[in-house]
């Protein structure tokens, strides 16, 4: 019957490309798609014998996929995205410990991830929480430049602010945890309740607020500052701001998946991507995070962490499942309940 022939042909057609390649690497990339493509391309140039299958996901998506596949992993390595889900995966033992020879070249904050997780994850870049505002829009409306967390409560900013929903976005959870560490839990929720009056929308994706601000769909987006810088460099009238009271940060991380099919290739990628040469390329791809390799050349646009007042962010505590569940439940009850339109 024709149906059977078609199935056989289909199967053969699908299997052919698979047969041609010897070594494979399945990479989940939880950063901007441009960076992900750049990484894959560069790795392909230096390692022509390994074919990389890259798929881009948000960090929440990546964790969900790896967890769903825990009994039968399809992924070898998970690069990028906020550190919390990486730590969570390490606590669930979904990822495997590896002590890279490159550790000596890294900043201490990158190694702190490895220390907390027993070498199951490691920092690859870091980003500082802040916001970006649309200067043209602010000028046209005669609004004052928002420099501190307290400035965001100005009633003139009603309907201008966007921030992601911490249930779906690691960025927004970092913001929530930062405010709690900065002000104390009850004060932080009181602050968020006041802020809620000014928030136009709680987006699903972490960097969406500043993209909306760039196009004038909002006035200001609370995001990681490197996302604001990207919009600024693209030519939008966005100015990144680091809050004057102090702010938190993320450590974008990388983990090897426990029980994966290609552990050796994954380790080659792991060591390669921690190198100074690769990390210096990142700004070209529009990624202005702070590199974890000490020798990496910083971009002129990147945020200088020494100029920002950083809090001592407690990754172990705020990355833990109980703390996270508690904060999210409270956010849902006090803020989110009022937000759903």
């Amino acid at each position: 019957m024709t149906g059977r022939t078609a199935i056989i042909l289909a199967g053969a057609a699908l299997a052919l490309p698979a047969a041609a390649q010897a070594a494979e690497l399945n990479l989940i990339c939880a950063a901007d798609v441009v960076i992900c493509e750049r990484l894959t391309e560069e790795f392909g140039k230096t390692h022509p014998d390994i074919s990389v299958n890259m798929v881009r996901m948000s960090s929440g998506e990546a964790y969900a996929k790896i967890r769903a596949e825990s009994r039968n992993p399809q992924t070898d390595i998970w690069w990028g995205g906020t550190g919390d889900p990486h730590l969570q995966a390490a606590a669930d033992e979904l990822t495997t410990p590896y002590e890279s020879p490159m550790q000596a070249e890294l900043h201490d904050w990158a190694l702190s991830q490895a220390r907390v997780s027993g070498n199951r994850t490691i920092g690859v870049y870091s980003g500082v929480l802040g916001w970006g505002y649309n200067t043209e829009h602010f000028a046209a409306k005669g609004l004052k430049e928002p420099l501190c967390w307290a400035d965001l409560l100005d009633p003139a900013l009603k309907g201008e602010i966007q921030i992601a929903d911490p249930n779906s976005s690691g960025t927004a959870y970092t913001a929530l945890a930062t405010l709690v560490q900065l002000m104390g839990e009850d004060e932080a929720f009181a602050y968020l309740k006041q802020l809620h009056a000014n928030v136009a929308q709680y987006t699903k994706s972490g960097s969406a607020p500043v993209k909306a601000a760039a196009r004038g769909e909002a006035g200001l987006g609370i995001v990681f500052m490197h996302d604001a810088v990207t919009q600024q460099v693209e030519g939008f009238p966005i100015k990144p701001v680091a809050p004057c009271e102090g702010t938190g940060y993320e450590i974008g991380s990388m983990s090897l998946i426990e029980g994966s099919a290609n552990p050796d290739e994954a380790k080659i990628f792991y060591d390669w991507v921690l190198g100074a040469e690769v990390q210096s390329l990142m700004p070209e791809a529009g990624s202005y995070q702070i590199a974890s390799n000490k020798a990496a050349k910083p971009s002129e646009h990147a945020i200088d962490p020494s100029a920002v007042k950083l809090i001592d962010y407690d990754f172990a505590e705020y990355g833990s499942a109980e703390r996270r569940k508690h904060l999210l439940a409270r956010w849902d009850a006090e803020i989110g309940g009022a937000a759903s339109e």
Partner: peptide, 18 residues
């Protein structure tokens, strides 16, 4: 801010709440 069922399903799988 609020979604519909199909997006809520998506985000309850892929979002931080997984």
């Amino acid at each position: 801010s609020g979604g519909v069922l199909s997006t809520e399903i998506f985000f309850s799988v892929v979002g931080a709440q997984n």
